[in-house]
Amino acid sequence: MSKLLLLVEYTAKQGERGAFLEEVQAAGILEKIYAEDGFLKYAYYLDAADADKILLVEEWASEEDQQKHLQTAHMAQLKAIKEKHVLSTTLQKILVP
């Protein structure tokens, strides 16, 4: 079974990057993700050259675990937070043997 690595790039609405990250943290979403089956890594990185860019690196034990993750209540909560603060999202999916 292959592990799944996701590189997700967010472009926040102008000046909203900090508010997005603060709201995600305050909602306790990260702790809920860390407790999920198949969780290996979920980390945000900030672009030093662009104050509106965020890179999310996700790693899951399997694609199935990641798909279950998308169905959780806290992911619906994250989606609502993203709608307030994020302009666009791009995704790169990598299967790791």
Rank of each mutant, 00 (worst) to 15 (best):
M75W: 07
E59M: 08
L87T: 02
L40C: 09
H69L: 04
K82G: 04
V24A: 15
F39R: 01
L30K: 12
G15W: 01
E59K: 08
A43S: 13
S62G: 10
A43M: 06
I94T: 14
A73W: 11
F20I: 09
E59R: 14
A19Y: 06
Y45T: 03
V24L: 10
M75P: 15
A48I: 04
F20C: 04
H74F: 11
K84L: 12
I81L: 01
Q71H: 01
L70Y: 03
K79M: 12
Y34G: 01
A12K: 08
L95D: 00
G38F: 11
A19S: 11
H69T: 07
A19H: 07
E63N: 12
E36M: 12
H74Q: 15
A19V: 06
S62W: 09
A49L: 08
E63A: 12
T11D: 08
K13V: 06
K68F: 05
I54K: 03
A49Q: 03
K41L: 11
L56D: 08
A49G: 10
Q71G: 12
L6N: 06
L56H: 04
Y44R: 01
Y45V: 07
Q14Y: 10
I81T: 00
D65R: 10
T72K: 13
E23S: 09
L5N: 09
D50V: 12
E22Y: 01
L40V: 06
E36G: 15
L30V: 07
L95S: 10
T89W: 03
E16L: 05
A51E: 14
K32V: 06
R17C: 09
E83W: 07
K68Q: 13
A26W: 12
G15Q: 01
D47Y: 02
L6M: 10
L78S: 10
